[in-house]
Simulated scan of single mutants.
Amino acid sequence: MEIKWLEDFVALAEVSSFSRAAESRNVTQSAFSRRIRQLEAWLGATLIIRATVPAKLTAAGHNFLPVAQETIRTFHGIRETLRPSAEPRLVRIAALHTLTLTFFPEWLGRLEEAVGPLGTSFIPDRGGFDSNIEAMVVDEADLFLTYSHPQVPLRLDDAGFEYLIIGRDRLVPVAARQVRIAGALHAGAGILDRAVASELELPCLSYGSASFFGVALGHLLARRPPFARRTVHENTISAGLKTVAMTGSGLCWLPESLVAEELADGRLVAASASEDWLLDLEIRLYRHCANQAKPVERMWRAAAQIQSGISSS
């Protein structure tokens, strides 16, 4: 038996809908249904009446629900109790790679100035927003640090998760000082504006259509004047795209925080003079509301305190 089966069952009991419960647990409906059946098989009892809409609990389901809820609370409580007191609990953070390089170090420093040392640990990148949210649901991560944009939907149960807006950034179109196009060198400064005004075909470095930045940029490009372009390189990691862009391989949108030094010293240049090609981003910190671990609470309160001070200044 797995603790996530119990959490699935409790989520289903709360909303009486397989689809809504699966969405709140950030898994597909088929995977969610399979896990409920696995729980029923392990118990040897049917918990859900599936022939009705909304779904209803059987008598066994009603009897088992408080047991499941108490088991979940007991499991998480015991785990905290058993952690060695000599080894302080590290707050486990899932994060987009770029933010670990640019935003996180300075932000953590401000938190520690306010509340003292905070033990933190980045978990291995699970790839994709949904996978990182799942890491919180199954208690492999305590917090998730990510970019957010209104046109990239985040499928989250508002009752199950909360977030703080702890910073802002933006994607900016950049290029090397000289860009290679069809064997000739072109000035990188303003190259996007020139492509819009002419038939110049731009080589572009892409995040791919499925990544967060890829989806966000897709919406931006759909609203802006068209220009001829072709993808010459793809990478979901911004730092990797930056390295390729600096060789003169093509146009690329990158987080401004990641390229601030390169723009300042001229290794990269603005590909457009218009702010219409910029994409504003929020930096958000998410957590699962069920996570009540003391180190997580302490860090969350510190983040809220810092953000409140920024908002009021």
Rank of each mutant, 00 (worst) to 15 (best):
residue 3 I to K: 02
residue 12 L to I: 07
residue 12 L to H: 07
residue 16 S to M: 10
residue 18 F to G: 03
residue 23 E to N: 12
residue 23 E to Q: 14
residue 25 R to K: 14
residue 28 T to S: 15
residue 29 Q to D: 13
residue 31 A to G: 04
residue 31 A to H: 12
residue 32 F to P: 06
residue 41 A to M: 13
residue 44 G to Y: 10
residue 56 K to R: 14
residue 59 A to H: 06
residue 62 H to R: 11
residue 78 I to Q: 03
residue 85 S to G: 04
residue 90 L to A: 15
residue 111 L to K: 07
residue 112 E to M: 12
residue 126 R to C: 12
residue 135 A to E: 06
residue 139 D to I: 03
residue 141 A to N: 03
residue 147 Y to K: 11
residue 151 Q to L: 15
residue 154 L to F: 15
residue 170 R to H: 12
residue 171 L to Q: 00
residue 176 A to N: 05
residue 179 V to S: 02
residue 180 R to W: 12
residue 181 I to P: 05
residue 182 A to N: 14
residue 185 L to K: 11
residue 197 A to Q: 13
residue 200 L to A: 06
residue 201 E to P: 06
residue 207 Y to G: 02
residue 211 S to A: 13
residue 212 F to I: 08
residue 215 V to A: 02
residue 221 L to S: 07
residue 221 L to V: 11
residue 224 R to I: 00
residue 232 V to S: 02
residue 247 T to G: 02
residue 250 G to I: 00
residue 250 G to E: 00
residue 258 L to R: 01
residue 259 V to F: 03
residue 259 V to M: 02
residue 261 E to R: 10
residue 264 A to G: 06
residue 265 D to K: 03
residue 268 L to E: 05
residue 279 L to T: 05
residue 280 D to H: 13
residue 281 L to N: 03
residue 282 E to M: 05
residue 299 M to F: 08
residue 302 A to T: 04
residue 308 S to H: 10
residue 310 I to M: 02
